[in-house]
Amino acid sequence: MTVSIVRFGGSNCDRDAKRALEHLGIDAEIVWHEDGLPADTEGIVLPGGFSYGDYLRAGAMAARSPIMESVREAASEGVPVLGVCNGAQIGCESGLTDGAFTTNESARFQCEHVYLRVERADTPWTAAYEEGDVIEIPIAHGEGRYEIPDDRLAKLEDDDRVLFRYCDENGETNPAANPNGSKNAVAGVLGDRDTVAVMMPHPERATLPDIGPTDGRGVLRAFE
């Protein structure tokens, strides 16, 4: 599979994603957004960073760039799409996934390791885990608090679209283990299809063995 990693002005996790994917033996190339999606794209990563300087709202500008039309079209055809951090913000802003990521409860940028509970193991992103598994993955964001009106959150949960929740090391959700004040501790959600996912934590930063835990590998293995 060839994964296209979409680089916007201000993306900064594009190279990390490429390196992590290649470490797993997955072909990946960085694609400048103005060049459009290559014809051989079989998977898409919207990487982290600060596209367009987070002007207006994080992800707002990139979500409305022409390449996102192609990304939405590919997603609707079943091409796997993963949005990480700024890519998650872009995913929500562009309607690939429901909800919004906004200012952390702390009003601060937070860069730390967190625990996530795997809410569903029957998706391409979580096939390497068991439901209820606790994995350790870093976050690095100022606007990662998941917000969504209560009725839509209820529907999201009823439809089993929550992929990961922030939890403590025992897998329990509680305010102390919710780093940014996300509603119901949501850390990652699925789109209409299971092949579309966004998450604030960085699986590509938990893949190479020389920089710490490698629990994020399972997520990227969806592209194998």
């Binding site: 200012t103 409860e105 702390s106 009003a107 608090r145 004040g181």
Partner: peptide
């Protein structure tokens, strides 16, 4: 922000 949505910057 809609009523009820936390505004940490305003709180600060």
């Amino acid at each position: 922000l809609k009523h009820g949505v936390l505004d940490p910057e305003a709180e600060t």
